[in-house]
Nucleic acid binder design. Structure first.
Lengths: 245, 245
DNA sequence: AAGTGGTCTAGACCACCAT
DNA sequence: TGGTGGTCTAGACCACTTA
């Protein structure tokens, strides 16, 4: 491992440009031939680097048009990061109602997960999500205030688009992947009221860490889901294979 | 879409060979140059076809040795198909105890999922899985008897290796991917007894369809998991990205 | 030393999109 | 019509494994 392959270096350069905002979401990268000139490599090597960025969903190729920085349109987010689907029937978009928005300090675990010093300031946000016009999830979000310094409840709730779109457009943080740990739990009094279920009803608990380029953490989120009419869909392979079939 | 790209045709040919048993699990495929000759394409085209098979985990490349048909060794299975991990600490291998093994008929839903006619004969198998020597999951498995005609409880329980390894070595059915739907449920009397939890304890319910080449279904499985000390880990992206980093 | 996969190049041609 | 990504080729050289 004395030296990384050329295409890995090209990929690193491109990733730095993406993370640093040289090319913004929705914008086109230089053409592959232009990149080949710029990095002084062959076009095949550029293609291999871009291939991997496409696999990681950092960029999107469009034949005849160019290669574009992934942007967080609603459909893309629904598909990649929202895994709650009706037991039968089509996926639907959740509607979000913000119930709480306050300042706090990170617990030790949260600080570790967010890669900030213990006790660092955070935002705590609670959202109620409705599916098909009925309460289905309660989301508790934790954000490092260092990464979202000027966030306000107004900015958060008055956004035109999705939450991840806000992170991306206002703070330059594009969520690329998330890892989730799931378990079963029981509804307490408050959550039961919000989700309109009985106390002690079974809920699916999802603990998510959302990450951007270089695996840097962006957001912590705990979701409590009423799975009476919805499932959590985990179709590993399909997403990888979809474009390969 | 008049004509598929050459490398897709090569990939299809290879997949047919794999599904048909021309190359058995653990065996080496012909070298890439040999395949290039055989299909009368350039070596780069063969590589692109094999690249996709690698991404789908149907084969594994080993530099200097060759390309091998994926075989279901325990470590691989643990990593790709067993998503239950300790809340903290290292993954451990589950120990399986078969509690029931009987003949039955498929329900309408099962028949659809298994792609067999409604009412077709099936095997029903119940296993108790222990993690760190304590009961943690109950698995209810449904198999089409048409695909496992000569299976017996003895063969099933006396196998030397994992269940998926048995499917592969004895029936030529390599499980390549699975899709799972998760929800939260409550322990009934019988399950509570098996998992040594209280009635009404929260359990994670996992409904899985395991598939082989061409997405043909192999196995239906419902798992009920005690998530007091274990989580279901869904790290989309990591598996895709792991080899790319 | 021989054989395998892994990287890299240079160029041709095609399919698609914008204008 | 010109520019973009997508496919395909032919060949060189490297890194690794096995004997």
């Amino acid at each position: 491992m004395l030296e990384a392959p050329l295409y890995k270096e090209v990929k690193q350069s491109l990733t730095r440009g993406l993370a640093g905002g040289e090319w913004r979401p929705g914008e086109a990268l230089p053409s592959e031939s232009a990149l080949a000139l710029r990095f002084k490599v062959s076009i095949g090597t550029v293609r291999k680097a871009v291939d991997e960025l496409v696999a990681e969903r950092a960029v999107v190729r469009q034949q005849g048009r160019g290669t574009f920085v992934s942007s967080h349109d609603a459909k893309r987010l629904l598909f990649h990061f929202f895994h709650i689907v009706p037991r039968t029937g089509e996926r639907s978009y959740p509607e979000t109602r913000t119930l709480a928005f306050r300042r706090d300090r990170a617990t030790a675990d949260e600080a570790t997960a967010l890669a900030v010093p213990a006790g660092d300031p955070v935002w705590r946000i609670r959202n109620l999500l409705l599916l098909d016009e009925a309460p289905a999830l309660v989301d508790d979000i934790v954000l490092a205030r260092a990464r979202f310094p000027d966030l306000t409840e107004r900015i958060f709730t008055q956004r035109e688009n999705t939450i991840y779109n806000l992170y991306q457009s206002r703070y330059g943080l594009s969520v690329l992947r998330s890892s989730e740990r799931l378990r079963a739990s029981l509804a307490g009094a408050e959550i039961a009221r919000l989700l309109v279920v009985k106390r002690g009803a079974p809920l699916l608990e999802i603990n998510r860490i959302a990450r951007t380029y270089h695996d840097a953490p962006v957001e912590l989120r705990r979701s409590l889901v009423n799975t009476e009419r919805y499932d959590y869909l985990s179709d590993l392979g399909k997403s990888e294979v979809s474009q390969l079939t």
